[in-house]
Nucleic acid binder design. Structure first.
Lengths: 188, 188
DNA sequence: CGTAGCATGTAAGTTGTTACATGATTCG
DNA sequence: CGAATCATGTAACAACTTACATGCTACG
């Protein structure tokens, strides 16, 4: 068992940037680790509670007049230690499920236009992702120009760009092949 | 709700190649869709049972003397129809979690050697994946030379190769950057 | 005045993994 | 003779998503 609670470590990591609320964690994760890691509120709030009970984080309540209270979570020494121990363990790889590929694998069962449409949509998504990466890069250059952690953030961004470009290229190649298939089918 | 039971469709798809047992499904998925889709027995057997109850598959028992019985599952007309309907729906994308990137994102918290070691291990995994793809490609050329579905299988294989190469390149670049970082750290 | 954002959380359901249980046969 | 493969399945649990519930404020 022990699937080792990855969400927990993601949150611990984000909290290393400073004390935050569950809401903040969600927002921050959106533009920082958003392209390779996402957490839902339904996951964040219970995990924070559990970590507080285990002494990995400390909870403080910030009372704001005319606004909902904010529950700010802060790393404890124990939490920081856990985080470091996790960072040093080698990451485990698992096969990511890819619905597009699964459908394409069975592409022979449906008219070729169906697969082409799926790939074409993916192509467009890649284009959008690449645009987002460019924007994030500019934002990083401005807002984190001097941050010592910036190089690491750029590395993860580079990863996204490498993969998105590769995926886009594959889409283009595949669309060409599917196009030929379509013509062949029409002739028969 | 309705997370739309992806595993179910994967199994329906594999069953379109012919009637099979749960065990067979697992084996077949290993080398066919293995690099982008995996199912465990704990998922396969209950799903088959459920689909049989819903009339998407038909179960036949093959009695073998001196061996465990084999439960062979076969697509029904309803199952086939469900499969086609699913194939035509546009695939949904979800952000795949990447533990390596998550650790790298927080790389500033640990000595640079730690991140380098993680990336280096990933580099080696890419090498192995590429070797597997080459082997699968050869196997496909031989064993499925005339299969009309072969082009689709090759497309999914191409995808794997594109991504693995991109990932390998990224690893190399990143290792270089991390190497420089290490030297800088040592000098300070 | 409606919508979006701020802000917290719970409940119910689904999906998936891992470990366990069983027992025969084949191969080295 | 021990390990791997064939073959099926269950139980326990972990993880995650979605929808719901609440209510205020700022903005157009």
């Amino acid at each position: 068992m022990a699937r080792s609670n990855q969400s927990q470590f993601a949150l611990l990591g984000l909290l290393s940037f400073g004390a935050m609320s569950g809401y903040d964690l969600r927002q921050l994760s959106g533009w920082s680790v958003g392209h390779f890691w996402r957490e839902s509120y339904g996951q964040i709030y219970p995990t924070l509670k559990k970590m507080a009970a285990e002494g990995l984080v400390r909870r403080k309540t910030e009372v704001n007049p005319g606004r909902p209270d904010r529950h700010i979570y802060e790393l404890t020494a124990a939490g920081r230690k856990e985080l470091y121990r996790w960072l040093e363990r080698p990451p485990t790889v698992e096969v990511p499920r890819n619905e597009l590929l699964l459908k394409l694998f069975f592409g022979g069962l449906v008219p070729p236009g169906v697969s082409a449409e799926h790939v074409s949509q993916r192509r467009e998504q890649c284009r959008q992702e690449l645009a987002t990466y460019r924007a994030t890069r500019e934002r990083l250059e401005k807002e984190a120009a001097k941050d010592p952690q910036k190089p690491f953030w750029l590395m993860t961004l580079n990863y996204g760009e490498h993969i998105a470009r590769a995926e886009a290229n594959w889409c283009d190649e595949t669309l060409k092949e599917l196009g030929e298939k379509k013509r062949q089918t029409k002739r028969n």
